[in-house]
């Protein structure tokens, strides 16, 4: 039996991971700026830590979305998505978004492993 899912929960499921990606980019850029200005030795580690935290939060949103998708599906069998069920659509979209944006967070966040922090072009 399917459970009621509020609009707020659907918005969180749908937009949670992309929002974390945007915040991660802003925070990482800020940390690099601070690090380069103040010669802060821990800046690289801070960026990597921010990346791990952001990725975990985005995964959390993915799990949240996956749970809502299961609730929306109820006991329905068949394919991944009922084209007439808007809550399934939004929740499953949240799961896909989480996968995409976790990858994007990791792609951005690992650059301190390979690049010097403050060497400019």
């Amino acid at each position: 039996m399917s459970r009621e899912i509020g609009t707020g929960a659907l918005v969180v499921a749908f937009l949670g991971a992309p929002t974390v990606w945007a915040l991660h980019l802003a925070v990482s850029y800020f940390l690099v700026s601070i690090g380069c200005r103040t010669d802060w030795a821990g800046a690289k580690a801070a960026v990597l830590l921010a990346t791990v935290i952001a990725a975990l939060i985005a995964i959390g949103f993915g799990v949240f979305a996956w749970q809502r998708w299961r609730w929306a599906r109820g006991g329905r069998g068949g394919g991944l998505l009922d084209p007439d069920h808007v809550r399934e659509f939004l929740a499953l979209s949240g799961v896909v978004f989480a996968a995409l944006f976790v990858a994007a967070i990791i792609m951005s966040g690992i650059s301190p492993l390979f690049l010097p922090l403050c060497t400019t072009s």
């Binding site: 700026s33 951005s108 650059s111 390979f114 010097p116 400019t120 072009s121």
Partner: peptide, 9 residues
Amino acid sequence: GLSAVALGF
């Protein structure tokens, strides 16, 4: 002239 890591992001 931005930092290399920032360009990486």
